[in-house]
Every structure is written in C-alpha cells, then in structure tokens.
Amino acid sequence: MPRHRVFIEDTQESFACDEAQSVLLGMEALGRKGIPVGCRNGGCGVCKVEVTSGQYVTRVMSRAHVSAEEEASGRALACRIRPTTDLRLRVLGSMRATVCGDTRASATDAP
C-alpha cells in the first residue's frame, strides 16, 4: 500500500500514513502522548481537522460534528479520512487541547 506524508501545521510534525489507514490511526502510531483518540469511528468529533492541501477519501462521519458544507470545504474527522496524496492539516476542536497545548478547548472542560 502506498504511504503518504501527513503534515500537522500546528506542531510542524509529520508522519507517514498508509493509504489503507485513517489519518487518526497514523497519528496514534506517532505515539505522541496526549493525542486525544476518541471513538475512532466518526461519532464523537474529538479528532476534527481541517485539511489545507492534498486529496483524501472519506467515510460517513457524524453530522453533529462536520456539516455537509464543512465537509465540502475540507473539514473532516481524522478517523474517517484516508490519504490518497500527501496532506497538510490543521487540528480543530477538542483535539487542539492536547496536540497544541491550547487550553481554550480543553479535553476535560466537562465538569
């Protein structure tokens, strides 16, 4: 299976991601402590990203987290996209907290 480079703009890190593998699983394989992996199945929304360049294929993802318009403009759940070219992306949503040390969207802002 071809592999593609996925570049995370927020942290200037990149990793190789197999075409058969979701971008989130690729990030998980980075082994970076704190990557907030949620359901891995497109339902919880914690892995929301914005792809700023490159091509990918998607699987159905929760409309509670990514609207059709957002999806058309490059927003996606990282667990539901697979790269078909190299990608550049920005991390959105509650994932920012742990990937980028951004406390505005803390993963534990619940209670």
């Binding site: 907030p36 949620g38 339902g43 914690v46 509650s94 993963a107 534990t108 619940a110 209670p111």
Partner: peptide, 9 residues
Amino acid sequence: NPAFLSVVT
C-alpha cells in the same frame, strides 16, 4: 483517561 470525561456521542 482523558476520554472518560470528553468522548461521548
């Protein structure tokens, strides 16, 4: 784990 309080559907 962080998911306990933040990952819900």
